[in-house]
């Protein structure tokens, strides 16, 4: 098999698997019978839980990486929280937090 053919098949497989995974909940529960109560309740409680898990996912290198990188991430994350509680301006919180992080990883 040529390299291009192999690469194309890898892309096709990855695309198909991702589509099936993303569509699975809609295929299972999207029909006329509707969503079971328990899944409906999950649909309400999962988003905040997933968002919190995604924050942990973004910071996953903290316990395993270097001390200075961990500190940069924690400090920048704390800045985002503080700034957002104070001003509640989404773009400001994100821009300022990212700037703090970019500066910290260069000076620490």
């Amino acid at each position: 098999m040529s390299t291009a053919m192999h690469a194309f098949l890898v892309v096709a497989i990855c695309s198909a698997v991702t589509i099936v995974l993303r569509a699975a909940p809609f295929a299972f529960f999207g029909g006329k019978k509707g969503v079971p109560r328990i899944v409906e309740a999950l649909g309400r409680t999962l988003p905040p839980a997933i968002m919190a898990a995604l924050v942990v996912y973004c910071l996953k290198s903290v316990p395993f990486g270097t001390m200075s990188n961990a500190a940069s991430q924690i400090i920048a994350a704390a800045c985002v929280v503080a700034l957002h509680v104070w001003k509640r301006n989404t773009l400001l919180s994100i821009a300022a937090g990212t700037a703090v992080y970019m500066i910290l990883i260069r000076i620490m």
Binding site: T45, M51, V56, C58, Q73, V81, T98
Partner: peptide
């Protein structure tokens, strides 16, 4: 790319203002 992390944090802070969302968030974390 930290902007992605910051985006997720901001959404968490917003959702934490709603008391009903706090328990699931703690559980998820």
């Amino acid at each position: 790319d930290f902007s992605m992390t910051a985006l997720f944090i901001v959404i968490c802070v917003e959702r934490a203002m709603n008391a009903a969302d706090r328990m699931p968030m703690v559980l998820g974390a």
